[in-house]
Every structure is written in C-alpha cells, then in structure tokens.
Amino acid sequence: MDFFIQLLVGGLSVGFLYGLSAMGFVMIFKSSSVLNFAHGELIAIGAYFFLAFVTWAKIPILLSFLLALAGCFLLGILIERIFLRPLIGEPLIFVVMLTVGLAAMFKGLILFIWGGNLFTYPDFLPKALGIDWKIIRIPPVYGATLIIGTLFLILFGLFFKFSSQGIYMRSVADNQRAALSLGVHVKRVFALSWAIAALVAGMSGMVLGIINGVNVHDLSGIGLKVFPVVILGGLDSIGGAIIGGIIIGLLETFTGGYISPSLRDVVPYIVLVLILLLKPYGLFGLKEIERV
C-alpha cells in the first residue's frame, strides 16, 4: 500500500509538471495552429537562462527568476518576428518543419555554450514547502511547483477569460478573417502567444531544472512528452493539458512501478495511438461546431 501511495504521489507530481510544460505548447496551437517541435528547447532555454543568471551573474534568486522569464518572453517575440511571420499563409508542413529546424539550432547553441553536462541550481527552497508525513512525502520542490503551477494556471485562466487582449487572442484562434476585419492586430496576437508560450515553457524548464538538474538532452526530451499529454487533453484546451499531464504522469509511474521500467517511456505513446483512434479530438478538446 505504501508503494502504491508513493507511486500515486510521484505520478501526480510528475504529471503536474508535464501539464505545466504542455500549457505553452497548447497556447501556440490555440492561436496559430502551429505544432511546435521546438517546445522542448524552449523549456531548456528557460532553465539555462535561470542557470546563467543564478550561477554566472550571481543575481538573487527571485530576481533571476523574473529576469529569466522576461528573457523567454523576448525570445518568443523574436522567434515569431524573425522566423514565423514570413510564413503566415504558407502550408502547415513548412511551419512545422521550421520549428524542427529551430529545435536543432537551439539545441546546438545550448550545447555549444554549456555543453551536455548536468548542472544544478544552488539549494534555495525553504523546507517548509515540503510535506513529510509517514507515508506521503513530498519534497519542497514539488510543493513549490504546485504553488507556481496553480498560480500560473489561474492567472492565464483569468487572462484569457476576462482581459481584452486575452479575448482578442481567442478571437484570432477562432476566426482569423473576422478578427482581422474588426481591426485585431493578428500579427501582434501571434507574437504575444509565442511570447507567453515561451514564458510558460521557460518557467516549467526552471522548475524541472530545480527538480532534476539542468541537462539539455533531458529537458528537450520533455518536449516530446508533451505530445501525448496534449492529445489526451485535447490540443486546444489549457485545463485539459494539466489533466492530460497528470494522467500521463500517473500512467508512467504506475507502469514503471508495477510492470516494467523499460515500458515506462513508451506507454504514453501507446495510449496516444489508442486515444487518437477512439476519440480523435482528445478528452477535453472542443467539439467542432459546424454550421453551413
């Protein structure tokens, strides 16, 4: 029973992280229906920004965190401006392949600057964030993750539901032509959604870095985990991404714990194929409202 609870807690925490990482991915897909293969690299870049600020520049933790977020935000804008804007209106495969190329470029750059070694952040989290009952033990990192993640989720929920800019972003995702006719700055919306996505990705990268250490191969690998997560949750649902993440996380830890550790990494994809066959738009994806 202890083992079961351990797995449950582990799975929930890992899954929440997956969901958090997937949020940025969903955001880009929602606004511009681009499948971002460079997402893992964006996650990694966030972690390395934080690393650079904390260990090289020796800036206080909180400030570094904010600076790294700002850096990711700017990077997102730059990516959209330089690489994606010229491709508006081109077939999707080009856009998707462009993100593949970007992924290789970013990975090369990170490897060039930092190499493939494992880095760790200095320990800074207060112990009080963790929970240590007899059976359930949650290290402080996960406590922090839960708080940050929930905060971001609520913030983005409010942003998309109530702020004008959030509503403009949703309108572009919904009907680009109509949005254009009302004077919505569609290009600005694209830039903003890339910026926010990079920011969220970077944030999850930092959290992952705190938990597992910073290594470009591990972090960019998370970018591929995102696919089963978002398919499960529906490609266009941010809340669904979190739930999808938790389901995949639980699935992984339980297969790893009870069946075989080697099956752990492939189970999400098997589930993915099954879901695609049975429920093509995911568990929480929008059902198409089709009218003629």
């Binding site: 491709l87 990975k107 090369g108």
Partner: peptide, 23 residues
Amino acid sequence: LNIAPLREFVFGLAIVLFILLEP
C-alpha cells in the same frame, strides 16, 4: 566538446533557411 554541437546548429539552420528562402 564545444565544436560538435555546431553540426546540429548548421543542420537546423539549413532547414530554416530553405523554408524561408526557397520553400
């Protein structure tokens, strides 16, 4: 160690340039 990643970078750059300049 720092030179090998250049391959990855140039590979990515080639894809990006082709898509942007001669799709």
